[in-house]
Amino acid sequence: MKFRKDKYILRFMSMSIGMIVAGILLGIFVPSFAGVGLIMAGMILSVMGVYAATKPMEYFMPDERINKNTDKAGHHAFWIMVNVVIILNLIDTFTSVSIEYNIAGLLILFIGIYSFWILGWFYNKKGDLE
């Protein structure tokens, strides 16, 4: 099996290994879950980098249809997420309900990511992207 050694792969792998090293250092000096999270994310990225290194560069180049699909899904997901943030802000400012950002941030992230995935899947199935 042949591995690519171009600058994109080297940059990606150095970033993932850097994350693992940063996670180990953070775990030693500041005991928290952030270190474990960094190590796990770095390991996942390393595996992804090794997989990507075995494929040719053309394999990952998106065509025009995929670009259009991503843009359309991102456009709608952006508006969904902005509306969620505006509604949370209005509730936080104008009512007696105080929303903790720990919960609201996770809610915003989940809504944003899932709406992007679902819309991407939907526009992929739908076909014509006009």
Partner: peptide, 11 residues
């Protein structure tokens, strides 16, 4: 669409 898709990632 491109602008809002990129802004989505930034947010």
């Amino acid at each position: 669409m491109k602008v809002q898709s990129t802004t989505f990632g930034i947010i």
